[in-house]
Computed example of a mutant assay.
Amino acid sequence: MPLPLAPLIPLAIRLGLVATTTVAVTRWVRSSTHPGRTDQRAEDALDDLGEGLSLHRPADRAEDRQTNATARLRRVVRFRGRTYEIDAGLMARFRLREADE
């Protein structure tokens, strides 16, 4: 007895479109981004952050109206008999200056 394949054609077309789109987007993202680098100074600065959230304006940057923010979260999570250590750090700078035209 022959197997009717006609009802599977729309599903096959959809899956093919999804796979093609995924490959195209992956190639585009990889081509438009650079591999990056690891700066040891930045790694050391993130390791020296205190836990919690900090927001401050440096006195020597008052004319730039610069604001700095830091955040760090360190937790130990136990899940299904395994232990994971989460260490997330963030450093940010926002500077607002008047541009010379």
Rank of each mutant, 00 (worst) to 15 (best):
T26F: 10
G50S: 13
D60T: 11
G36L: 00
S54P: 02
D48Q: 14
L8K: 08
I9A: 08
A42H: 14
P58V: 00
R80V: 07
R95I: 15
T26A: 10
S54D: 09
G52Y: 02
D64C: 06
R65K: 13
R30T: 13
S31Y: 04
L17D: 07
R41P: 03
H56P: 03
R57P: 03
A92N: 05
A6S: 12
V76R: 11
Y84P: 02
L3F: 11
D47S: 12
V23L: 15
Y84E: 09
D87N: 15
V23F: 12
D87T: 05
V23D: 05
L73M: 07
A62D: 13
D48A: 15
G50V: 09
A69F: 13
M1K: 05
G81I: 00
R78S: 14
P2C: 02
T67F: 09
G81T: 00
W28C: 04
L3A: 05
L55H: 05
A62M: 06
R30Q: 14
V18E: 05
A62E: 13
H56L: 09
E101R: 11
R74Q: 10
A12M: 09
A12T: 09
E43P: 01
R97D: 12
A62T: 11
A69T: 06
L15E: 07
R37T: 13
R95L: 13
A88E: 12
A69R: 05
G81C: 00
E98T: 08
P58T: 00
L8V: 06
Y84Q: 08
T33D: 01
L96F: 13
V76H: 07
G36T: 01
S54I: 04
L90R: 06
R97S: 11
R82D: 12
V23K: 10
L96G: 06
L73C: 06
R57F: 07
D87R: 12
I86R: 07
L53W: 15
R65M: 08
V23G: 04
T21I: 08
R41I: 03
T70G: 01
L15Y: 09
R80T: 04
T38N: 05
P7G: 00
T22I: 04
A99S: 13
R30F: 13
S54R: 15
V25C: 07
L73F: 14
E63L: 11
A19F: 10
M1C: 06
D64N: 10
T20N: 03
G16A: 09
R14C: 12
E98R: 12
P4C: 03
P10H: 00
G16H: 01
G50I: 05
E101W: 09
A69K: 02
P35T: 07
D87P: 01
P2S: 08
R57H: 11
V18Q: 07
M91W: 10
M91I: 15
H34R: 05
L46I: 10
F94K: 06
L3S: 06
D39I: 06
D39V: 08
G16W: 05
L11E: 04
D87S: 10
R61D: 15
P10N: 00
R82S: 11
L5Q: 04
V25E: 00
V25Q: 00
L96W: 08
Q66K: 04
R61W: 10
F79S: 03
L49M: 01
E63D: 14
M1H: 10
D39L: 07
I86N: 03
